[in-house]
Amino acid sequence: MNEKLYLEDEENLGTQTEENYEQVYCRPNTLTDVPFHYCPGCGHSVVHKVLMEVVEEIGIQEEIIGVAPVGCSVFAYHYMNIDMQEAAHGRASAVATGIKRVLPEKYVFSYQGDGDLAAIGTAETIHTVNRGENILMVFINNGIYGMTGGQMAPTTLPGMVTSTSPYGRDVSMVGNPIKIADLLCLLPGAYYVTRQAVHNPNAVRKLKKAFMKAFEYQKQKKGTCFIEVVSNCPSGWKMTPVETIKYLEEKMFPAYPLGDLKVPKN
């Protein structure tokens, strides 16, 4: 076999390819060249990447507007090479509502963490879905406030140690984790609600399909699509990225089971 296949290319510190090989996967052009500021192994970057792959594949880069939250993904607009608007903490879905109503022909999505969407922004979240706003809401559930130093979130698991629950989350004091996606299913405005992940290649493929569906439904003006991604926070959880994958599988997924929660009736 040709050694060139895996030898180091000094200029690129990468690997060289055989000339006749065809490229089957590359970074989407809808991402800017700015390197992500996220911590190593953070799920936010994977979700950005998958979302932008879908935007590129269905060719809606010029027709989509995103709304960024307050949280670690506050700079989402540095990376996603599309029109974007920053919202105040928790208000992304309200801002997305306004944008969609003024520009109904555009695809509109909001992107929020759990502290943003399920704590300070709970009211906006519930009412946006209740109104059945024709937008996609992307919800990154990493069970913690990442940006501000790993404080307990409404989604933090019972017993989970955070900087504001140093002895573990005490449900007798602060209640149980809130399953916001399950709650939203009860509202007639919710058209498609699903819970996905990015912890392995298959999960990434499934998330991509979910984004595809959501944009198709938005095109058909069906109502609110809500995609939760159960993600990690290596820094907040004080684990290596590889350890967070194990924690996701052993602790997070039993509490937040993956799969579709509400699918359109035919």
């Binding site: 390819t17 055989e18 006749n20 090989y21 065809e22 490229q23 089957v24 996967y25 590359c26 970074r27 989407p28 991402l31 390197p35 992500f36 996220y38 190593p40 192994g41 953070c42 799920g43 936010h44 970057s45 994977v46 990447k49 990015v198 912890h199 392995n200 290649p201 990434v204 493929r205």
Partner: peptide, 20 residues
């Protein structure tokens, strides 16, 4: 060239090639 590594890479830093 299965692309598994590229799919999970948070930095979108892997390009995959396959023999036709």
């Amino acid at each position: 060239g299965c692309a598994n590594c590229a799919l999970v890479c948070p930095e979108a830093g892997i390009t995959v090639y396959r023999e036709p």
